[in-house]
Structures are given as C-alpha cells and as structure tokens.
C-alpha cells in the first residue's frame, strides 16, 4: 500500500505529518514532503486516521 498526497488540494494543515511522522515531514512553507510512500501494515491505522482527518481530502491510501 502507498500513501499519495494530491498537491492541488493540500493546504498545508499538517495533520498528516503529525500522524505519520515516519513518512511525512513539512517543508519551510509548511507543506508535506513524502520521504517514503510504501506504507507498513503497522502504520495502516494511523494512515487511515490521516485520510479521515485531512480537511482537504488530499491524502489517500492506494493499493
């Protein structure tokens, strides 16, 4: 499974970076940088939460 972020939707709220610190860091403008995107099973719950909590519906988990 992979994490993808739609940069056209993202407004830099930072929820995903807070929940998925191992995968996402914020740049100096406070937009997410995906340092890796292959999602480990043990992080699936956190990733699902990030998907639910993103106010812009910008983050997705794909097969």
């Amino acid at each position: 499974m992979k994490i993808v972020i739609d940069p056209t939707r993202c407004q830099g709220h930072g929820t995903c970076a807070a929940l998925l610190a191992e995968y996402i860091e914020m740049d100096k403008w406070h937009y997410p940088i995906l340092s890796r995107n292959q999602l480990k099973d043990s992080h699936l719950e956190a990733a699902k939460k990030a998907v639910q909590l993103c106010p812009e519906l910008a983050i997705k988990i794909i097969e």
Partner: peptide
C-alpha cells in the same frame, strides 16, 4: 502559476 500547489505558489 495556477496557484493550486504550495511548492509552486511559494517556491
């Protein structure tokens, strides 16, 4: 710029 993506808008 279309002004949609942060890195483009600020970068």
């Amino acid at each position: 710029s279309a002004g949609q993506c942060g890195p483009c808008v600020y970068g």
